[in-house]
Amino acid sequence: MYDAGKVIVGLLVFLCLITFPVWYNVGSGKGDFKPDLQLGTQEKECVAPKLQIRASHMQLLDTWRDTVVREGPRLYRTWNGKTFEMSLTKTCLRCHSKKEKFCDECHSYAGVEPNCWNCHVIPKETQ
């Protein structure tokens, strides 16, 4: 390999740079940061089991969205027979009334920016 020394040094510098955020967080004591979620409700049950909601609430919301807008049905029957209106603001946010401490807390931790709120209006009591 030509210029082996330079290449290896270059690779090392590159590795340091791209892993910098990790070292920075560890160094500043944020290494074990976990989002602190506040449910904002006394309700015990969601529209699907907790693990499922956690893993795939985005698919659920997409399905709700397409069903309501494109096919018409507005009601959703859960696995245990309860019925909810398929509505992000009227159903989800009614319970998860602390959007910032629930949705945003986890979304910013995971580094995702859902664009729901560009159009959907956050209810006043939620803000």
Binding site: T67, E71, G72, P73, L75, R77, E85, M86
Partner: peptide, 8 residues
């Protein structure tokens, strides 16, 4: 699927 969604 057919059970999950229904109109009002």
């Amino acid at each position: 699927a057919s059970k999950a969604f229904s109109p009002n």
